[in-house]
Amino acid sequence: MTTRRGLARPDDIYQALMAAQSGLSPEDAERFRARLILILADRLGDDAAVAEAIAAARQDLRRATGA
């Protein structure tokens, strides 16, 4: 997958992602991530890009764990 646009402050974003989940139970963290995925998909606003992102994530998991 080609990166569409680089983030200006990747460290800030990564930290914000972690901070949002800190102190959450594993179940609530999962709930948070489901919401985030849906919101991000909407913000992308491009069906093909979302489908590509889903495929890229799944492929990377397969490569890493064989799942």
């Binding site: 999962e30 709930r31 489901a34 919401r35 849906l38 919101i39 909407d42």
Partner: peptide, 20 residues
């Protein structure tokens, strides 16, 4: 079930989620 709950929760405040 996880995503359905997220969609239904979001749909109250976020119009985009109603499409799901």
């Amino acid at each position: 079930a996880l995503f359905r709950e997220a969609v239904l929760d979001l749909a109250t405040e976020h119009a985009f989620a109603r499409a799901f």
